[in-house]
Amino acid sequence: MRPDNTARIIAAAQRRRELTRAKALQALRELDRTGVPITFQSVATAAHVSRSWLYAQPDIRTEIQRLRQATRSAPAAPIPASQRTSEKSALARLDIALKRNRELAEENQRLRRQLARALGEHRRSPHSRNSDDSPPTPAKPHRSSVTIGPC
């Protein structure tokens, strides 16, 4: 009577299945990372597996369909999923930009008030006008800008 080898055959089949899944997932990640359009054919070719096998794996099939749809809807060159902006990230960046915009508007208003005060003080200073009847002093070259320090 022959020895029972079913346990070894089952173990070998499980190892082969795990290796094949790992190859398919690695190929899928590599194609996505490089920006290659994701299709069942491209994954099958890169992983050296059949397309029918890919269709039979629900999780891999779902991921291929998700990535394929994402790259189809992209207007330009496909962006790898790991580099795509999530909605949460985009909203956070928009919030930061709006906050920075408010800060710059407030700083702009503060600088305008500071400049108005400096120009008012310059007009009121005795050097800016001639109050006595002496002949006007020769005009100094006019400086077109005034540097204002912090308040």
Rank of each mutant, 00 (worst) to 15 (best):
Met1Val: 10
Arg2Trp: 06
Asn5Leu: 14
Asn5Asp: 13
Thr6Val: 06
Thr6Trp: 13
Ala7Ile: 04
Arg8Trp: 06
Ile9Lys: 15
Ala12Arg: 15
Ala13Met: 13
Gln14Met: 03
Gln14Lys: 13
Gln14Phe: 04
Arg15Ser: 08
Arg17Leu: 11
Glu18His: 12
Thr20Ser: 08
Arg21Gln: 13
Ala24Asp: 02
Ala24Gly: 09
Ala24Trp: 00
Leu25Gln: 13
Leu25Asp: 10
Gln26Met: 03
Arg29Ala: 05
Arg29Tyr: 00
Arg29Cys: 00
Glu30Arg: 10
Leu31Asp: 08
Asp32Ile: 00
Thr34Ile: 05
Thr34Cys: 10
Gly35Met: 08
Gly35Ile: 08
Val36Lys: 02
Val36Thr: 13
Ile38Val: 13
Phe40His: 11
Ser42His: 04
Val43Gly: 02
Thr45Lys: 05
Thr45Tyr: 04
Thr45Asp: 01
Ser50Gln: 12
Ser50Lys: 12
Ser52Trp: 05
Ser52Arg: 03
Leu54Lys: 03
Tyr55Asp: 04
Tyr55Thr: 08
Ala56Trp: 01
Asp59Arg: 07
Ile60Trp: 06
Ile60Leu: 15
Arg61Cys: 15
Arg61Ile: 01
Glu63Cys: 10
Ile64Thr: 07
Gln65His: 09
Leu67Glu: 07
Leu67Met: 06
Arg68His: 15
Ala70Gln: 03
Thr71Ser: 07
Arg72Lys: 14
Ser73Asp: 09
Ala76Gly: 12
Ala77Trp: 14
Pro78Met: 01
Pro78Val: 08
Ile79Phe: 05
Ala81Cys: 04
Ser86His: 07
Glu87Asn: 14
Glu87Pro: 10
Glu87Tyr: 08
Ser89Gln: 12
Leu91Pro: 01
Leu91Ala: 14
Ala92Gln: 11
Leu94Arg: 15
Leu94Ile: 08
Ile96Cys: 10
Leu98Asn: 11
Arg100Cys: 01
Asn101Glu: 14
Arg102Tyr: 04
Glu107His: 06
Asn108Arg: 10
Gln109Gly: 05
Arg110Met: 05
Leu111Tyr: 04
Arg112Trp: 03
Arg112Gln: 05
Gln114Met: 11
Gln114Lys: 10
Gln114Val: 05
Leu115Cys: 11
Arg117Ser: 09
Ala118Gln: 10
Gly120Arg: 05
Arg123Gln: 09
Arg124Tyr: 00
Arg124Gln: 15
Arg124Gly: 14
Pro126His: 11
His127Leu: 13
His127Lys: 11
Ser128Leu: 09
Arg129Gly: 04
Ser131Cys: 10
Ser134Arg: 14
Pro135His: 15
Lys140Met: 10
Pro141Met: 06
Pro141Asn: 06
Pro141Ala: 15
His142Asn: 04
Arg143Ala: 08
Ser144Arg: 03
Ser145Met: 04
Val146Lys: 01
Thr147His: 09
Gly149Pro: 00
Gly149Trp: 07
Gly149Val: 00
Gly149Asn: 09
Pro150Gln: 15
Pro150Thr: 11
Cys151Tyr: 04
